[in-house]
Amino acid sequence: MAAINQDNRGLRLIVRYAVLTLIAIIFIFPVLFMVMSSFKPNLQLLRDTSSLRAFLPVGDISLDNYYDAFRRAPIGLFVFNSVLVTGVTVLLSLFFCSLAAFSFVYLNWKGRDLALTIIIATLIIPFETIAIPLLLFVSKLPWIGLEGIEIGWLDSYHVQIIPWIADGLTVFLFVQYFKDLPGELIEACRVEGASWWQIYVKVVMPLSGPVIATAAILKFLVMYNQYLWPLIVVQQETYRPVLVGLQYFFQLNITWGEIMAYLTIVTIPVLAIYLVLQRAFIASIASTGVKG
């Protein structure tokens, strides 16, 4: 009997992995295509697209595309700019948005429901539709720079960061998550005389690993893939991010292999961040078992 059970379990395990792997094949091919194409000369790459060869490292394989891509554009600079802007924005966003969400869920104050309704309504507004008004607005805002007060935020890092710190989605993510946290715990802390700030820092945030990871990766993706906004507020190459840099490769005679090499390079930071944050999903509230 025991042996049969063992076999059953083994078989089930195999089936599970088979299902997981089958699905994985469906999801991995854009990355395979991107990476494999980055090693191929242009004509071969284009011919391969009609068959499964597109996903295999076959034919004339070389690093030429990488070499050419680095000659065509200051890739290091673009990646640096994007990582800097994205990193700072994500950190500030996590702080401000979780703080606001904390207030919406745990605190009772005048105007709270209206403010939350407004924030959720902003989820509906596609950025494309407010880009021009926002451009006109930030071009009139003052900034204290090295040479005193300047008017206009154009051509800088802060113009790419500050307008993006707070957004409805991140606040909403935290709000929905906080609602699931045990209220009794917070009330107990209040009774023991903890300040709201202490509860936020020492109780709520340590329990929020999964949502912090989720919010961080989602915000990271949005920020790292910025295109329209930096395009209209940044004129100097010094501040350009990766997707604006992608345009360097769309010349009259497009070398698709170089584009794929460029995209492979710029995708690495996103993948790295995801893999790092993935750990946070495991270090979750579930394992602490506080939820009643």
Binding site: A100, L107, W109, A115
Partner: peptide, 10 residues
């Protein structure tokens, strides 16, 4: 406290 916490984000 409510306003102080919500204000920066809002």
């Amino acid at each position: 406290a409510g306003w102080a916490f919500a204000l920066p984000g809002f």
